[in-house]
Design a protein around this nucleic acid. Structure first.
Length: 110
DNA sequence: ACCGTGACGTGTC
DNA sequence: TGACACGCCACGG
C-alpha cells in the first residue's frame, strides 16, 4: 500500500481479504478505510469489472441485498457465486445476513 | 473549475 | 424494512 495507490486499489485490497463464504457491505469497507463514503466503495468496485482476484460478489449493501448484481455478466452470476460458496441467497438478498457478515476489522494483516 | 452521476448510508415519517 | 430527502466524494465530460 503506497500513496500512489488510488482509492479503488485500497478497496480491492480489502475486498480480496473477504473470507470465502462471508460477505460485507459497502459502508463497512468505507468505515475501515476511513476515506470517503460507501458511495466511493461502490464506485471503486464498478471500475473493477474484469479482475478475477477481486471477489466483488461478496460486497452487498447494508440490507444484504445484491444491489450490484446488474453489473455482473450475467446479472445472476453474483447470486450463483455466493451460493457456490455456501451463502444462502433468496430473492437477490443474503439470508441470515447478520450471521455471514464480515467486518474488515477482522482482516488478517500479512 | 462546474456539474451530473452513482454497486450507499442515515435520519425521519 | 416500506418510502423519501439529504450527505457523501472521485471521476468524466
Amino acid at each position: 500500500m503506497t500513496s500512489t495507490n488510488s482509492y479503488f486499489e485500497l478497496v480491492y485490497e480489502v475486498t480480496r481479504n473477504i473470507p470465502k463464504g462471508r460477505v460485507t457491505n459497502y459502508g463497512a469497507i468505507a468505515d475501515f478505510l476511513s476515506l470517503g463514503s460507501a458511495r466511493m466503495v461502490g464506485w471503486a468496485l464498478n471500475q473493477c469489472h474484469g479482475m478475477p482476484d477481486v471477489p466483488a460478489h461478496r460486497v452487498v449493501n447494508r440490507l444484504g441485498e445484491l444491489s450490484g448484481r446488474s453489473h455482473f455478466k450475467p446479472p445472476t452470476a453474483m447470486a450463483s457465486r455466493l451460493r457456490k460458496e455456501g451463502v444462502k441467497v433468496k430473492e437477490d438478498k443474503v439470508v441470515d445476513f447478520e450471521l455471514v457478515f464480515w467486518h474488515p476489522r477482522e482482516m488478517n494483516l500479512e
